[in-house]
Amino acid sequence: MTGFVELDVRPILRAGGEPFGKIMETVKNLPQGQGLRLIASFKPTPLLQVLGSQGFTHQAREIGGGDWQVDFTPGSAAGKAPQAAPARPATEGNWPAPIQELDNRLLDPPEPMVRVLAATESMAPGEVLAALLCREPVFLFKELAKRGHAWRGAFEPDGKTYRLLVRIGGTPGEAA
């Protein structure tokens, strides 16, 4: 029987705050074998995906007044230390050197995104892809999150080239 750590984010939401960081921190610190019981003022659909990609299964039910309770149970793949949250830029830890470099700066949108996603399909978990882009790939992030990959990205000092690193998901993250 899985025990649950309860997190009620309704006060954060009511205060106009942003519970994502708190949720991911709680997930990261879950004791072995424990699940997360999340209470929110709406059905947190994007989160279902994010945690799903980390191996959690969920059971969501409305508890009245528009509020939802979602129980996330760690699956066999979800260990004590989930990999860097794939749904946001990963900042911690050292990543291996990229095994592939793409220069997508002169491609018409959405071709840069197509090439990055095509490349990730042929790579093994844990491997890193680097890509140069001419702008922040806002639509790509969602797609990477859905596929369980982590990324880091920033503009180079020239302010014109955006360098994106994508680490293929599917294995526990390396030591931070």
Binding site: P19, I23, P44, A87, P89, V138, L140
Partner: peptide
Amino acid sequence: MLAIPGATL
């Protein structure tokens, strides 16, 4: 809502 960086449709 839950902030995943980037835009959605």
